[in-house]
């Protein structure tokens, strides 16, 4: 019995040490990436390629999901607001939920599973097939040439995707609320505009999506770079990217929300 207890605690201890170790490693990796971003600045073509693969290729899923989320919000919001006789506030409800929370968070979750997993798999495979080592032997720094452009591509794409998600969502809410159900068009927009504050809501949502983009891209790149060079290692790393980034997004969202909206 005693033995089991000791084993249990030593297992926990090992995991904690392992976790702290990894955290330090991630930080160093991130610092290196930032330090060696000069190549990305002098050769924007590299970053543009990565914006294409993480941004443009995620566009469809983001836009369609945004539309559907907005439409669901329109239906559900209408049903709830109707009982209080304030259907006019549907625009407020849809816009505030999207701009403050759902836009950045859901877009980031989709981004993690669409673009993040792709980044991890790509870099993990490059490592498995010794392409990263080959780069090093060609006197080309893989962090500067491979990691940094993907990092900036992700960081730039994410806020734009979140904004597109929110706009598509508002449009979806408008379609259901105004076009389908028949909430007054003017009230829908004017109440929304009166309640949504640019600095407080839109800018804060934008900041959130930037932070999420930063976190997801870092995790995805690190997991790929750190993956054991086997097929199993890469597949595990890809799964870990999605799981870790999703949890990180939700936790960060809580922290950021607590900071941003505490007084209201």
């Amino acid at each position: 019995m005693m033995r089991i207890g000791v084993n249990f605690f030593s297992a926990i201890g090992r995991r904690v040490i392992e976790g702290v170790w990894r955290l330090g490693y991630v930080t160093r990796f991130l610092m290196l990436t930032l330090l060696r971003s000069c190549t990305s600045l002098t050769r924007p073509g590299l970053v543009i390629r990565e914006i294409y693969s993480s941004g443009v290729l995620s566009l469809i899923i983001i836009a369609v999901s945004g539309l559907f989320v907005g439409m669901v919000l329109g239906f559900q919001g209408y049903e709830t607001l109707k009982t209080y006789g304030s259907e006019q506030s549907l625009g407020v409800l849809v816009a505030l939920s999207l701009v403050r929370e759902l836009g950045p968070v859901v877009a980031a979750l989709l981004f993690a599973s669409r673009a993040g997993s792709a980044i991890t798999a790509e870099i993990g495979l490059m490592k498995t097939t010794e392409q990263l080592k080959a780069l090093e032997m060609m006197a080309i720094d893989p962090i500067a040439r491979i990691v940094a452009p993907r990092f900036w591509g992700g960081v730039i794409s994410m806020p734009l995707l979140a904004a597109i998600f929110s706009v598509m969502g508002v449009f979806g809410g408008y379609l259901v609320g105004v076009v389908l159900i028949g909430v007054d068009d003017g009230a829908f927009w004017s109440q929304m505009q009166a309640a949504v504050d640019v600095r407080h809501d839109v800018v804060n949502g934008f900041i959130k999506s930037c932070v999420f983009g930063f976190a997801v891209t870092t995790i995805a790149l690190f997991e790929g770079y750190d993956a054991p060079p086997t097929a199993e290692g890469v597949s595990r790393a890809t799964t870990r990217t999605v799981v870790t980034s999703s949890l990180t997004i939700l936790a960060l969202d809580f922290v950021l929300t607590a900071f941003m909206f505490k007084g209201v």
């Binding site: 543009i48 390629r49 294409y52 443009v56 566009l59 806020p159 734009l160 904004a163 508002v170």
Partner: peptide, 25 residues
């Protein structure tokens, strides 16, 4: 590729403007 990235960035910026002017005030 440049064209697509251009379309994407323009759409993203347009979405931010819509959020600022049409959704917010």
């Amino acid at each position: 590729l440049d064209l697509w990235v251009g379309v994407f960035v323009a759409a993203g910026l347009a979405a931010l403007l819509v959020l600022a002017f049409k959704v917010g005030n």
